[in-house]
Design a protein around this nucleic acid. Structure first.
Ligand SMILES: NC(=O)c1ccc[n+]([C@@H]2O[C@H](COP(=O)([O-])OP(=O)(O)OC[C@H]3O[C@@H](n4cnc5c(N)ncnc54)[C@H](O)[C@@H]3O)[C@@H](O)[C@H]2O)c1
Ligand SMILES: NC(=O)c1ccc[n+]([C@@H]2O[C@H](COP(=O)([O-])OP(=O)(O)OC[C@H]3O[C@@H](n4cnc5c(N)ncnc54)[C@H](O)[C@@H]3O)[C@@H](O)[C@H]2O)c1
Lengths: 256, 256
DNA sequence: AGGCGCTTGTGAAGGGGTGCACAAATCGCG
DNA sequence: CGCGATTTGTGCACCCCTTCACAAGCGCCT
């Protein structure tokens, strides 16, 4: 299906690293599967069916099977997937076999919470350094890490081989900080500031904007209110659906 | 996302605001446009071209025009869009003309940061109440709001007409909290806990999971590293045997 | 050994989103 | 008053994703 790769040389050749080249949508779901799998493993399950895992991850089972098939997963027909093996596979694909070092820039209100978040550590990452521009903040110790001045970013980034930068500064400072991160070789950035970052090609940016999430919810809230206020013209008023409490579809994450 | 609703009204008839029934992808971008527009307005701009606004919002200009056309927006050919008018339109569509009340449940590490976040207030929302289950936390005052016990949720929700619930509790508590929110009539939930919530139809859930964002970045980081490490088909015939050294992490070889 | 039930993996259909390219509309200016 | 420059709005083709439905594969039981 997904053979877009131009083969460099026809004939035999082969032997290309053959990275799976997964669809973005699949990549975005793999972490969710991984979390569900860890839960299952903790619960003592050794295998799980696509149906079971799909439910735990909040997705459609066909979608899950297709996602897993993309990474050449090893399931057993009639049985399901080996939980431990699948965890290993997904972690490998996501590049979580190595514990990547994360630098957090902006240790303010939000930055403090992030610095103390154990979800970082428990899911494959290591907060390697904290930075802030405020001299009053520099030197402060959080969770065993000392806040350093951003001017030290270059030196520390090299020492710690920072792989991912997290920006938790005010919006006005986000672009300069991003530039500094890029300058020291960071090619992945998670941005909490409500602004668009401009980065060179090859650098990935993901954004988390709380206000946007709320505004999207607001839209649906608004729409729901309008619909109930003005009942749907046609016949079917509130069509009582069977199974009133069915779990809804997957809850969307953020991102593109 | 939840299911579609009945299509728009058949005959015209009603002089209703004509609910646009926007594509989800468009809805997700409108807040970004809104933010960019506010920046432009603060900068003194009165009009803006689709190209200019698209750049500010980090999207393609054709996409932006199509998005705006969906909400029947009023642009002027040869000129552009009236910034103030467009702000008004988008805010109206998103239901931001009223300041929605938000309840935050779980005032821990992250909850504290959220409670103090002014991006809430400045973008159309009002934190109306804080809740926690820990008696030690109840009574604490944050930003002029007193933390209450979750048992009071029912009463307070009615008083403040809570529209949106934000969950910032540990994952184990998220589902019960969601159930409580739904029970008191909340139909929009923003979930920061890393778990899937099951809610009745008609309730919208959006999820923010920091670890997932990092893991997605990790994937791309991993892929980029593999690509640069093994440049595309060097030309010389060193890699002869397929799968010669597949012992390492890369589990390629997805069979067709 | 063979049949049976269960589950995976996937072909194919359908829907939605994206971006190009262009006609239509508007303004400013000669 | 008309013309050209500019910019919107959108038809269309393409691509990705989702979902259904089912054949193939696997283990188990008889
Ligand atoms: N607080 C939240 O819950 C929340 C939620 C979502 C998004 N955000 C966004 O996250 C960002 C941070 O929010 P906050 O509430 O922590 O703000 P804050 O003001 O409390 O913290 C910002 C920190 O960044 C530091 N800083 C400023 N310029 C810097 C620079 N050039 N280099 C390094 N550090 C610099 C400041 O010294 C400060 O410590 C903002 O953009 C905000 O909009 C916050
Ligand atoms: N801290 C972060 O930066 C961060 C980032 C992303 C996601 N998260 C997630 O957000 C959630 C909260 O993280 P945290 O670091 O603030 O944890 P925390 O332990 O500091 O805070 C959790 C709070 O929830 C309260 N709580 C527990 N059960 C409750 C219940 N049933 N009803 C009401 N309140 C209850 C606790 O008393 C506590 O105050 C977690 O699920 C975490 O995984 C945190």
């Amino acid at each position: 299906m997904s053979q877009h790769r131009h083969p460099g040389a026809p004939g035999s050749a082969g032997a290309v690293p053959a990275l799976p080249d997964l669809p973005e949508a699949t990549v975005a779901r793999l972490p969710e599967y991984l979390r569900a799998l860890h839960n299952l493993a903790d619960g003592g399950h050794e295998t799980v069916s696509s149906e079971g895992l799909a439910t735990a991850a909040g997705v459609n089972s066909a979608k899950l099977r297709k996602d897993l098939s993309h990474l050449g997963s090893y399931g057993t027909r009639g049985v399901g997937y080996d939980v431990a093996l699948l965890i290993e596979q997904i972690e490998s694909v996501l590049g979580l076999t190595q514990r990547r070092a994360v630098a957090l820039v902006g240790v303010g209100n939000l930055g403090h919470a992030l610095a103390g978040y154990d979800g970082f550590a428990s899911r494959g990452f290591r907060i390697a350094a904290l930075f802030d521009a405020d001299p009053a903040r520099v030197g402060e110790e959080i969770n065993g890490l000392v806040v350093r001045h951003v001017d030290e970013l270059s030196r520390v980034a090299a020492e710690e081989s920072i792989a991912i930068g997290v920006i938790a500064t005010p919006a006005a400072a986000a672009q300069p900080v991003a530039d500094q991160l890029v300058a020291v070789g960071v090619t992945s950035i998670l941005n909490f500031a409500p602004c668009v970052l401009s980065v060179p090609e090859g650098v990935d940016v993901r954004k988390v904007d709380l206000a946007i999430e709320l505004q999207i919810l607001s839209f649906h809230e608004h729409r729901k209110a309008s619909l109930t206020a003005l009942p749907a013209t046609g016949g079917s008023a509130l069509t009582a659906l069977p199974g009133g409490l069915a779990a809804n579809d997957s809850q969307e994450a953020i991102g593109t």
